[in-house]
Amino acid sequence: MKYLQGVLFDWAGTTVDYGCMAPVGSFMDMFAEKGIQVSMEETRQPMGMAKIDHIRTMLEMPGIYSQLGNQKISEKDITEMNERFEQLLFKNLGDYADPVPGAVAAVEEIIDMDLKIGTTTGYTRDMMKIVQAGAAEKGYAPDIVITAEDVGAGRPFPWMAYAAAMKMGVYPMNRIVKVGDTVMDMKEGRNAGAWTVGLVYGSSEFGLTQTETEQLSEQDRLSRAAEVRERLIEAGAHHVLDTIAELPAYLKELDHQLSQQEVLV
């Protein structure tokens, strides 16, 4: 590779946990325990943020805020909600650590291309211990994992990306390709000044398990994919791929284009 030096991956919905299913049910169950009904769409909208920020964002949504009535939601309340969310998530998080189809092979090929690998996540450090262990058993074990706890704030701020770049030893940021599955991933990548690539199938934005995806009619699948692609582009993606398996070929193409004439993000 002549221009690109590293790839920065998200975790759930990008390299593991097809459909980013682990957090969704825990968020919805936690809100239900509080007597607040939330939709799948509302729950997925802030996906990619640090989880406590995810809760804050949901509480500000009109459909959720209207259910609060005159109830005051304090920072203490939010902290307690986040603690309950974590309790619910930890019960089954290890069941959602399998790499998505094609991820292990794609990452191995990218490493063979002499590109550094870094990762950022909306999960906490304790959550990542479980996810990393499960993923490593299936062949995916990146060395560099940055959480919001490591830098003070999660997405859409670029701090995790910067910290990962430092550990990767790569600069400037336009030598890195950020790959993710959510609107927040795209914003993180663009805010960091990295080339930013979105993924459709297996993403939180697509929002279905692999089995559910395969059961869709071709028309429904393509229509849903087009909507996801549009959202990711609107959020700042330079390019959107169907699956992670397409990433190595795209990186080679992008590197060739950029090496012909240096282009700043």
Rank of each mutant, 00 (worst) to 15 (best):
V183L: 09
A141Q: 14
V131W: 05
R175H: 12
T211S: 14
Q261R: 15
P23H: 04
T124D: 03
T121W: 01
V240A: 00
E75W: 08
V200H: 02
Q260H: 15
T15A: 12
P142C: 13
L254D: 03
I52H: 09
G63N: 15
V151I: 12
F206A: 13
A161S: 02
L4D: 00
Q132W: 10
P248N: 06
E42S: 09
S203D: 07
N70R: 03
E214K: 12
G154E: 03
E42I: 04
I117W: 02
P23D: 10
F157R: 09
Y65K: 13
G69R: 12
F157P: 02
R155E: 04
G19L: 05
V24H: 05
I52D: 14
A226H: 06
I110K: 08
C20V: 02
V107N: 07
P156Y: 01
S217K: 12
T15Q: 14
H256P: 01
D98W: 05
E108R: 15
I64P: 07
Q5R: 06
R190W: 00
A133K: 14
T124R: 04
Y18G: 12
G35N: 08
M30W: 10
H256G: 07
A97N: 11
G48W: 00
A32V: 02
A32L: 14
E108G: 15
E253N: 11
H256K: 12
G169S: 09
K129I: 06
A226G: 05
N191G: 08
P156A: 06
I130L: 07
A237T: 01
V183M: 05
E218P: 04
I78S: 07
F85P: 04
M28F: 13
I176P: 01
G122D: 08
K178R: 06
T243F: 00
E137A: 14
D220P: 00
G63A: 15
Q87C: 09
D114M: 11
K51N: 01
E75K: 12
T124A: 06
I64W: 07
G202P: 01
R125C: 08
G63H: 12
M184A: 03
E214H: 10
Y123L: 08
G152A: 05
D98M: 15
A141V: 15
M168Q: 10
H256L: 13
E227Y: 10
M128K: 12
T121Y: 00
M40V: 15
D17A: 10
M186K: 00
V38W: 09
T121Q: 01
F90A: 13
G69L: 07
D220G: 08
I233N: 09
L232M: 13
M28A: 15
E230H: 07
L251K: 02
E214C: 07
V228R: 00
G13K: 03
G13V: 03
A245E: 03
V177M: 00
D112M: 09
R155C: 06
A103D: 08
I110D: 10
E42L: 06
A22E: 03
M21A: 14
